[in-house]
Design a protein around this nucleic acid. Structure first.
Lengths: 244, 244
DNA sequence: GTCTATAGGAGGATAGAC
DNA sequence: GTCTATCCTCCTATAGAC
């Protein structure tokens, strides 16, 4: 018991502060001075530990990614075994995909909370999104999509990808916790109430997938019901003057 | 015909350039010098026309908001009249909510394309989201939610708000067009293919709302099926050392 | 590992000429 | 409405002492 409750070393304090600040104002909205001041260390330490600002940003993003992926993969395997010889329900698949994230955002502490807000920022960023999200999460996402396809064998793969895209959009906006829904609902619903999200996101998304499956089946059965008739008025788009 | 095809005035060129750049790198990722250089005007003009960088940002956001709201409200009224004496389908409501946006992002030109990417940025931003989105869109959103409630009279209002939250998350990630889904699907699905989104988002979301309705009905009928059993393994959360 | 000091540039804003 | 010129702050990065 030579070093019980050692002070958190500078490197970790920088990561913590960077995580918190990047998640609120993005990569460019935070200076190294902001971060190191919040961390209580000197600016020069960023160069020493990480090399530069961008490298620090990536380090923050990577720190918690693998923990999550391991846990999500375990859950996915659990439900596959439990469903044998059949396949897991859509609800179970989406639950396994989202539960480790929502659970940690809800009860993992402030660091995790910030981390998921950062995920929301990155996932919606044209600059960082494709590169950073793909690098750390696409391998796992591909596994989930494979299981979704097993559970929806007659559904064209495009439908699964679109369904996943809508899922990840809904999920990441939830992580952002901007509080807009609080205001909109007059306080009836709170963005921070992730237990409510946990109860609802899986059925919502499963319902969405089933609707896409039905739509695809109808569309392939001869000319089925296509898109809803567009109101004629919508076609008259008053462009801003001078814009093509 | 005294001034046919006048050169676009400086003020508009600044707005155009700012819209494009802000949508790609966010508020802090773009300097006034970046913007005015792209617009081909001097930096000082931003001060003259808008007052400052933040005011410019708000001006960009506001420029196209009311055009959209007017059109969406017209569509909403159209479908309400068409459905009389009943209420519109969930699909029709979601379609009216999203069609004007997706249509302009797809075929409104580069300015509109950037604008919706900017919406994605703002909607997911803890700093700008609640204030800017609420100010310009909440009045309209409240009207849509009212119609959703009419169409789902037995569903608790919280469910409608959650369903809306998931909808707006899916929609805004679509606007971001980061291209991640292109890579993930091996090119089978393209983020820029908004016609495919237009065909799928309304049924997906409608299916989601119906699933939330069913869940709420089951939950209120005595202790119905609660959340899926949490895999025990998920509880063991290996925290990062030192984090509470 | 941590700090001091500083280089060297980029940032937003604005006064004032035209 | 537009540009020139300039102020002063803030930025990232790094060399070097401890």
């Amino acid at each position: 018991m030579t070093r019980k409750s050692v002070a958190r070393p500078g490197r970790e304090r920088i990561l913590d502060a960077a995580e918190r600040l990047f998640s609120r104002r993005g990569f460019y909205g935070v200076s190294l001075r902001d971060i190191t001041e919040a961390a209580g260390v000197d600016v020069a330490l960023v160069g020493y530990h990480f090399g530069g600002k961008r490298a620090l940003f990536k380090a923050v993003f990577e720190r918690r990614a693998e923990v999550l992926n391991r846990e999500r993969l375990e859950l996915l395997n659990d439900i596959r075994l439990a469903a044998r010889p059949g396949t897991p329900s859509l609800e179970a698949i989406v639950h396994a995909f989202t539960y480790p994230l929502l659970e940690r955002s809800a009860r993992g502490g402030a660091g995790w909370k910030s981390y998921f807000a950062l995920i929301a920022y990155v996932n919606n960023s044209p600059e960082f999104g494709p590169e950073m999200m793909s690098e750390h999460f696409d391998a796992l996402v591909a596994k989930f999509i494979a299981v979704l396809r097993e559970s929806l064998p007659d559904v064209p793969p495009q439908e699964i990808y679109w369904g996943y895209q809508f899922l990840t959009g809904a999920l990441t906006l939830t992580f952002a916790e901007t509080g807009r829904i609080d205001k909109l609902s007059g306080g009836l619903v709170r963005a921070a109430d992730l237990d409510s999200v946990l109860e609802r996101l899986a059925p919502y998304v499963a319902g969405g997938f089933r609707a896409l499956a039905a739509r695809a089946a109808a569309a392939s059965a001869g000319r089925g019901p296509k898109r809803p008739a567009r109101a004629a008025k919508a076609a008259q788009m008053k462009a801003i003057p001078g814009e093509g």
